[in-house]
């Protein structure tokens, strides 16, 4: 058993890190909004999904017009930019319409509004996709789909070889760039400082002449743009998308955010990578460990169990600080 776990380990690592990078960037969106509004933005998973659809649609457009046939990287950059712009604005719009009027209402009400938005978006994307193509499950065009072999077996005989697409490397690089960029932004820039100030204490921040509404809108723009960009990466990596990918992926990304300590940007990155690795490990080895009784179909159960365990034993997350409740 151990030998076959070791044999598949390189592939699990590659797949897990790729998936983990996707989770990490989506988790950033949750954690940023939660940090600033103390609201779980349920619609964030759907923003990710919308990003995937926008990217795929724009790429279809390029293909139909015959643009960038030879220069795939330009097309890649452009679809990323288009999806980011679209989902960023979408996020700002959602905040303006569905969350801002409820900022003083009980938390339960804004949460319900968020769930409503997420369902609206799912169905909206569903019927646009279905109207255009007749089927809401869309298989897009993938750039950089060629396979590489990493000869990990030459390092030691116990490992098998791992395979990855060029696109996997792109996913990883773009995700890391976005994470580092966001980290720099929140630590170094003036707007980043304002964002952290609003997250810490909204009223005092507004007394320090910070425009709170603008900062919140900016947070939503950045968080949603990151989510949308990840959607494009996801669509490129896994080729087939449907309007309901956002919900379960969003749930897992949220788990990642909680695992790392919600409101903590570095925590979300760490949590995302960890959840991705654990999930891939479970998918590959769960059946093996339980002698085929519980197979890969239980990998989601495994992730949710992690969430529940973290919330019970370490609700502040692995990297978060415990906060006392103020009366």
């Amino acid at each position: 058993m151990v030998s076959s776990i070791l044999h598949s380990l390189p592939q699990v690592l590659v797949d897990g890190l790729t998936l983990g990078a996707v989770y990490a960037v989506v988790a950033l969106g949750y954690t940023m909004v939660y940090g600033i509004l103390e609201l779980i933005n349920f619609a964030h998973g759907e923003i990710f999904m919308t990003g995937a659809y926008v990217g795929t649609a724009v790429l279809f457009g390029f293909h139909a017009l015959g643009w960038f046939e030879g220069a795939g990287w330009i097309a890649y950059m452009l679809i990323l930019a288009a999806a980011m712009l679209f989902t960023g604005l979408l996020g700002v719009g959602i905040e303006r319409v569905a969350y801002r009027p409820l900022r003083k209402a009980p938390k339960l009400i804004s949460l319900i509004s968020a769930i409503g938005v997420s369902f609206l978006l799912q169905d909206f994307v569903r019927f646009i996709a279905e109207l255009r193509t007749g089927n809401y499950i869309v298989t897009g065009i993938t750039l950089y789909n060629d396979n590489h072999k990493i000869a990990t077996s030459s390092v030691s005989g116990v490992f098998g070889d791992a395979f990855l697409k060029t696109n996997t490397i792109i996913v990883f690089i773009v995700a890391v760039l976005m994470m580092v960029g966001l980290d720099m932004f929140s630590k170094r820039s003036k707007w980043g400082v304002a964002m952290r100030a609003v997250a810490q204490d909204r009223e005092t921040a507004s007394l320090m002449s910070i425009n709170v509404n603008k900062v919140i809108a900016l947070t939503f723009f950045i968080g949603s743009a990151l989510g949308g960009a990840t959607g494009v990466l996801f669509a490129q990596q896994y080729a087939t998308i449907d309007p309901f990918i956002g919900y379960i992926l969003g749930l897992k990304a949220f788990t990642a955010a909680v695992l790392g300590g919600i409101g903590n940007i570095r925590g979300a990155m760490f949590g995302g990578l960890l959840i991705g690795l654990l999930e891939m490990f479970a998918a590959a080895n769960l059946g093996l460990i339980t002698h085929g009784n519980f197979g890969a179909e239980y990998k989601d159960v495994f992730t949710f169990l992690i969430l529940i365990l973290v919330l019970i034993f370490k609700p502040q997350g692995l990297l978060g600080k415990a906060v006392k409740e103020k009366v």
Partner: peptide, 18 residues
Amino acid sequence: MQRFIFGAILVLIAVFRP
């Protein structure tokens, strides 16, 4: 359109008639 309708109910009620 069930999802759309239920989503709309949730948002509209939350915003206008909590």
